[in-house]
Design a protein around this nucleic acid. Sequence first.
DNA 1: ACTCTGGTACGATCCACATCGAACAATACC
DNA 2: GGTATTGTTCGATGTGGATCGTACCAGAGT
Lengths: 115, 115
Amino acid sequence: MTIPAALDHGDRSEVAPPVAGISTLLQALADPIRLELLRALASSSQPVACGSFQVPVTKSTLSHHFRVLREAGVIEQRCDGTRKLTSLRRHDLDACYPGLLDSLLRAPAEVGASH
Amino acid sequence: MTIPAALDHGDRSEVAPPVAGISTLLQALADPIRLELLRALASSSQPVACGSFQVPVTKSTLSHHFRVLREAGVIEQRCDGTRKLTSLRRHDLDACYPGLLDSLLRAPAEVGASH
DNA sequence: ACTCTGGTACGATCCACATCGAACAATACC
DNA sequence: GGTATTGTTCGATGTGGATCGTACCAGAGT
């Protein structure tokens, strides 16, 4: 079940942790800001740098949100020079919770997620 | 989208509130206890009395959880003599968030949801 | 070397919430 | 009437989390 060392690209600094349990996952996704981040990530095919998200929080708070998403197994981040590219772990999520991500993305976005 | 008054049965003491927004809904379902309640409700075809749930909390806390679920639009409750029968608003949920409920119920239950 | 730029880490603050016990309300039963 | 039974409501409490500012760190560019 563990990834054979020969197949695991050694340069991944952060071995993707398992996707979290369902309540942890829901908790991670229950925050409006994080939901917005999820949508942004889902709507872009390429990994996105943390700084290029338009959310009304400071960068430290943003960093916190990314940590929560990462620890819940929702996203993956790899360093690229001075910035960090974030991408959705769509495949893993679909494997663990089939249909969940799709149904969330299909849901109408929260208008004015600021409050 | 609002229900025409002529079609809305006036005798419903609790006019089923609209299902909440996605983050509120996720927040409501993120709690392990409430997820357990959801599963119990989903697995029984008939409405269930509040007291007959086997969760490790006092009845006041249980009442609180039911209130959260009710206000999020997840459940519906109607009085029956001395007890209150709770049922899942499966249809409304499926209408608002297609696939969400199914994917949640398909997810593996959190083992020992007690803590 | 210095200086941006992008991001993390740490402390502090504030607020929401899960929990409890106790008091209360309403129905059923004797 | 009284007494269970079933739930709700109301403090009070503790904990977790969302937020911020500041300090810090690592690359990239000059």
